[in-house]
Design a protein around this nucleic acid. Structure first.
Length: 583
RNA sequence: CGGCGUGUGGCUCAGUUUGGCAGAGCGCUGCGUUCGGGACGCAGAAGCCGCAGGUUCGAAUCCUGUCACGCCGACCA
């Protein structure tokens, strides 16, 4: 491929809206083009990358007996009504009517389609286990797309669905898939991807893991224990707190004029924030009833955990003067009957708390929950803090990092097979519901994440396994006959050997060529120029600058082929090294 | 859905306060000089100033409405 013919314009200036580097570089490098909110087209350079990622994934899925299928993008609503998700999923599911007025959805995930595809086929236990997967576009009407291709509304995803006759069999296959995923991310050149425990969300099921690429640009918080290796998404992370019990005191109602935040109150009363009780107010989506979460003053509420305990969707409350709650002065003692509250474990055992009095301008001091309230129950609804206690090993060794979720695996159980009535007959002639697992990887997001992880100030540094091309030839001074001839010769020789080459023979200045080469990010670069040819050499470098070598013209093709193999081998060695990793 | 912000050639942005010929740099086209990190000169093309309405002799600029986009939050396999 000649660079002169490559569709997609590169440009110098960083677009104003880009907050993450991968977004800016993928636009500047002519990899993709903005079409609409959370919607992008891929230029050839990116399409080549995503194809390679897809093929790495296909190979690994096939290796664990996956069979590639293709589900439709448009699905009849009736299918989603079977599983109950036509109603239960929010606005991210696009619903529309066809010309006859019947309801349809745009596929945002394909559990229903997968069950629909195989439920007649798999009526006998002899057909199990099996896994089907597809690589296909999805549309999710996300509330807030961001960060270029990292969070979009339309995207390509590999989604796989496995079917089993027992939980044990699913466990076994889940482990296989877990390892296959590890190999995929190694092969894609991002050994930095780690697995974490996660909240299962709307997918249902129990066991689930997320694959996270740790990077400050990530949108998830990951809780990591440096001592024992415990890793969890913040959403699912168990909080462990040790409290200083303090000295028991008498319950007193004191005036705290204008003190609306916990900091104000503690400063005013000269009390420790560690023995204060903070209220965070939510409302149920269904009936707007108030749900108050009480946590120790220095903790934050983990809304995912709270939601799971409440058992339904909640949102941040809007409190007006007419409501039963007195904003800024809410406390668990004398709590209004119309509302509901939960006490976080971070409050457990404290003998003397400062808490709101549910009365404008007043707080209690000396509150002892177990003494002053009836039926005290503590639940885990707070966020883990940096430097906190590891729920696994108990040491004070928690760090919190940001990560991008590039893949996930779920054990679905029988949620879909039951609701959609998929059954099989076992060897005893008994009817059963198969157990399912599902496994996803976002292709475009992975490409963007790799760019985010592997780039410098000039552009991406693509790992050779997914790079749009393997070799980039810059012919400096294409108007010089000998230079052009040498570069042409090298280009043709590499092409004949099946190497993927992008060839820049434009009659343009060297500076522009180098900048473009950096922006495209091909791992091996060859510079053919009159200056190098004076020494009968070409210059061969790697995009990451680790290698810079003058190589005699006649040995260049061989050198390049060896270097290419070496780069592939480096990545393969990561895959080998990772084999030991366990769940 | 809430808060804040932005809409002006393909891109980055001035100009809006105080109404008076539609601007710059990059990019694009042509010619020339250059040639190892986006060089320079000359000539050119390219604009419904987001959209609609209003005020005014006159609106990119003021007013009203609306749409789109971005950031933060909420939400999210």
């Amino acid at each position: 491929m000649k660079l002169a013919n490559l569709t997609g314009q590169r440009f110098k200036e960083r677009p104003a809206d880009c907050v993450v580097d991968s977004h800016a570089l993928m636009l500047r490098g002519g990899f993709m083009k903005y079409v609409g909110n959370g919607i992008y087209s891929e230029f050839p350079a990116l399409r080549r990358i995503t194809s390679k990622i897809e093929n790495i994934i296909r190979k690994e899925m096939n290796a664990i007996d996956g069979q590639e299928v293709l589900f439709p993008v448009v699905l009849p609503a009736s299918l989603w009504e079977e599983s109950g998700r036509y109603k239960s999923v929010g606005n991210e599911l696009v619903r529309f009517k066809d010309r006859n007025g019947s309801n349809h959805v745009l596929g945002m995930t394909h559990e229903e389609a997968a069950v629909q595809l195989v439920r007649e086929y798999a009526q006998s236990y002899t057909k199990y286990p099996f896994m089907i997967y597809q690589v296909q576009r999805k549309f999710r009407d996300e509330a807030r797309p961001r960060a270029g291709m990292i969070r979009v509304r339309e995207f390509t995803m590999k989604d796989a669905y496995s079917f089993h006759t027992s939980q044990e069999d699913l466990d076994k296959y889940y482990e296989l898939c877990f390892q296959a995923y590890n190999r995929i991310f190694q092969k894609a050149g991002v050994p930095q991807v780690i697995t974490v425990k996660s909240d299962s969300g709307m997918m249902g099921g129990s066991v689930s893991h997320e694959y996270m690429l740790l990077t400050p640009a990530g949108e998830d918080s990951i809780v990591i224990c440096d001592e024992c290796g415990y890793r969890s998404n913040m959403e699912a992370a168990e909080n462990k707190v040790i409290n200083n019990e303090g000295i028991e005191e008498e319950l007193k109602c004191v005036e705290t004029p204008g003190c609306k935040t916990i900091q104000d109150v503690c400063a005013f009363l000269k009390s420790d924030v560690l023995s204060s009780c903070k209220a965070v107010v939510y409302q149920k989506n269904s009936d707007d009833k108030f749900v108050v979460a009480f946590v120790r003053g220095d903790y934050e509420v983990n809304e995912t955990k709270l939601k799971n305990i409440v058992g339904e969707e909640i949102h941040t409350a809007v409190i007006t003067a007419d409501d039963c709650l007195n904003a800024g002065y809410i406390g668990p003692y004398n709590f209004p009957e119309e509302a509901q509250f939960y006490l976080d474990i971070s409050l457990k055992g404290i003998k003397s708390l400062v808490a709101g009095a549910n009365k404008e301008g007043y707080h209690y001091t000396g509150l002892n929950l177990e003494r002053d309230l009836e039926n005290v129950n503590y639940v885990d609804i707070s966020k883990v803090k940096e430097g906190g206690i590891c729920p696994c090993c108990g040491r004070q060794s928690i760090t919190i990092k940001r990560g991008i979720e590039v893949g996930n695996i779920f054990q679905l159980g029988t949620k879909y097979t039951k609701t959609m009535d998929m059954r099989y007959t076992d060897e005893n002639g008994k009817t059963n519901y198969p157990v399912m697992g599902c496994y996803g990887i976002g292709i475009g997001r992975l490409a963007a994440s790799i760019c985010e992880e592997c780039h410098d100030e000039y552009g991406p540094v693509w790992p050779i396994t997914i790079a749009p091309w393997e070799v980039h030839i810059c012919c400096l001074r294409a108007d010089d006959e000998e230079t052009k001839k040498t570069a042409d010769g090298l280009y043709n020789s590499l092409l004949n050997d099946g190497i993927e080459v992008i060839y820049d023979d434009r009659k343009t200045r060297p500076g522009e060529m180098f900048s473009d080469a950096d922006l495209i990010g091909v791992p091996i670069r060859v510079i053919v120029s009159p200056r190098n040819l004076k020494e009968s050499c070409v210059e061969i470098t790697t995009r990451d600058k680790s290698i810079k070598e003058m190589v005699p013209v006649e040995k260049a093709a061989g050198y390049i082929k060896d270097l290419r193999l070496k780069l592939f081998a480096e990545i393969e060695s990561h895959v080998e090294a990772y084999k030991q990793e366990t769940m």
